[in-house]
Computed example of a mutant assay.
Amino acid sequence: MHQTILYARVSTTDQTAEHQLSHASKAGFEIDRVITDEGISGVSVPFRNRPEGKRLFDILRAGDVLVVRWVDRLGRNYDDVTTTIRAFMRKGVIIRTVINNFTFDGSTADPVQKAVRDALIAFMAATAQAQAEATKEAQKAGINHAKTDKTKYRGKKPSFDQATFIRVQEELTLGARSISDIARECGLSRQTVLRIRDNAQHAQAALERWRV
C-alpha cells in the first residue's frame, strides 16, 4: 500500500511541523506520516546529510508520495535540490508541493512533458537559492545600516522578530499568497508586511537596533 509522507524542515522558532501539516491539510492533502528535521539550515546542510532526510530514502518506495510545503524545504541550493528531486524520481517516488500544487513524477514518458517537468524543477531550485541569497543580503545590509547609525534613537520597536521577518520575505518571494494572507498567517498587520516588502533593509536595521 502506497503512503503519503510530509517532509517538514524546521529551521527557526516560528516554523513548526504542525504549521506545515496544517497548510498541507487545508490544500487537500491526506498525509499518512510527518517526517521532520528540526533546527536544520536549508543552505548549509545538504538533504542527504540531514538525519530524517537521509532516512526518507530508506522509507519511501516506488509509488509513494513525498509532500513538501515548497522545494525550499528540500534545500536552498540549486544543485542539492535538483539532485534530491531526481534521486527520489529514480526510485519511483512522486514529489508534490503544497504551494502551487506542482507534481514531479519520474514515470512521465512523453518527451515534451519531461522537458516541461525538468525545466520547472530547474526553475524552482534556482528560485529557492535566489530567495535564500536575497534574504541573506537584506540581513547583511540591515546589520551594516544599524552599525553605522550613530543616533541613540531606536524608533518604534518592530512588531515582528527575526524569524517572522525571514518568513515574510520567503512568502513575498514565492508570490503565491496575497499580502493579506501573509499578514494573517504571520500575525502581522497588512501595513507591516508592505513595509517589509518595500524596504527590507530598513526592517532588518530596526531588528538590529532593538536586538529582536
Rank of each mutant, 00 (worst) to 15 (best):
A134Q: 01
Q20P: 14
N144A: 13
D64A: 15
I196N: 02
T84A: 09
S107H: 10
T36D: 05
D118Y: 06
D64Y: 12
A183T: 04
L172C: 07
V93S: 02
K157C: 12
D118S: 09
V45Q: 11
R50T: 12
A130H: 02
R55G: 14
F123K: 06
Q204P: 03
A134S: 05
I179S: 02
D14P: 12
L21W: 11
R73W: 02
K157G: 08
A141Q: 06
D79R: 13
R154N: 09
S178E: 08
P46H: 10
A87Q: 10
A163W: 06
A163Y: 07
H202G: 10
L174D: 04
I166H: 01
G63L: 14
G28I: 02
L74R: 05
A141V: 05
I95T: 00
F102W: 03
T82N: 08
V193F: 09
F88I: 00
S189F: 11
R69H: 12
A132K: 01
Q191I: 06
A132M: 04
P158N: 05
R90F: 07
I166P: 00
W210Y: 11
K136P: 00
D80Y: 03
V212H: 07
F29S: 12
G175P: 03
G142A: 06
Q113G: 10
E38L: 15
F102S: 02
S44A: 15
K147Q: 11
A163N: 08
D105N: 11
F123V: 04
V68H: 06
T127Y: 00
R167V: 05
A176H: 11
T13P: 09
L56E: 06
M124C: 03
G142N: 01
S107P: 07
R50H: 12
I99C: 01
V34L: 14
D105K: 03
G42E: 11
A138D: 01
F104Y: 07
L172M: 08
L60H: 09
A62P: 15
R55A: 15
F47E: 08
D149Q: 08
N199I: 03
A138W: 03
G155T: 08
R117H: 04
A163E: 04
R184E: 05
A146D: 00
T97Q: 03
T12Y: 08
K147Y: 08
R76I: 08
L60W: 06
N144I: 09
L194R: 10
I31E: 10
S180D: 12
G142V: 01
F29V: 03
G142L: 03
R184S: 11
R90V: 00
E137R: 11
Q139R: 11
I196E: 03
A163G: 12
E171P: 00
V71I: 12
R48I: 15
A206C: 13
V45L: 15
H2R: 15
S159F: 09
Y7A: 13
F57H: 13
R195V: 01
A134N: 01
